[in-house]
Amino acid sequence: MKDKILLAHGSGGKLAHELIEKNFLKALANPFLVKWDDSAVFHLSGRVAFTTDSYVVNPIFFPGGDIGKLAVYGTVNDLAMSGAKPLYLSLSFIIEEGLPQSELNEIVDSIQKATQETRVEIVTGDTKVVHRGSADKLFINTAGVGIIPDGVDISGSNASPGDKVILSGTIGDHGIAVLSQREGLSFSTQLESDCAPLGSLVAEMLAASPNIHCLRDPTRGGLTTTLNELAKQSKVSIRIEEEKIPVREEVLGACEMLGFDPLYVANEGKLVAIVLPEDADKVLKAMRENHYGKDATIIGEVTAEHPGRVVMKTCLGASRIIDMLVGDLLPRIC
């Protein structure tokens, strides 16, 4: 049983210390964590961006990523979407008893690599172990802080008529890659999750134009949900063209099979940017030069009529509303 996480590992006693030392500190040690203090203490100066998120992905390992990498990238991306340079993260594990230690170690290693790549530090953390059935293998909660450079003002309420809408690449890769591993749905595909850190992409976009109005990563709920949020927050309409939205063939195939619309499928390494029309080409060029934005394209624009609504031009030239995702995306037969 030594290779499994037990309830005792969450008791606060010796086993808990052992877990922190052997499983976490070995990989993640830094000047903050090795102090073993109850809270991390540091200076911040400037405008601070602060975010939190929880990760409950099932399965915890999926093609192109795992829950650990996802947690770091996801948090860093949320900070980047405010234009912030991500600095410090907290990491809290809720582990279902019985999780193999080897899996936990693999995830912690993946977290370590992700923090190195994104140049952030895990400065505080926590672990709880719960009874079997009370959690699904492993849940991770994070928080993150970053500093926003002067002159940058990015918010979902900044979109104004005339602005261009840029999408950084293909949609639906993450959702379909994860779904391909689900019991009962299993289909095989070479497709990998697009799980990626977007900090460098955002930094290069801001270098091209500090006036970017909105940035958002279309995660759960997909592109449609993000566009609807932006339209509602900014009280404008967003018009996009169906034929301009890049979708991989595998994503399209899986969506046809399950009765999904790729517009609603989750992404973990894409962003939507709303920029001034005169800046659009500059920003687009900068995006295409970054690996994570190489398929970036302008998919539409912001208009004044129908505030709060997203309108899509179909391949027949007709227009229709696209609304937010309601509930779960359930595979359907009809």
């Binding site: 179909t314 027949l316 007709a318 227009s319 229709r320």
Partner: peptide
């Protein structure tokens, strides 16, 4: 299924 195609592509409009 046809209803969905008709609405999704905006066929009534054209």
């Amino acid at each position: 299924g046809h209803t969905v195609t008709i609405f999704r592509y905006g066929i009534r409009q054209v």
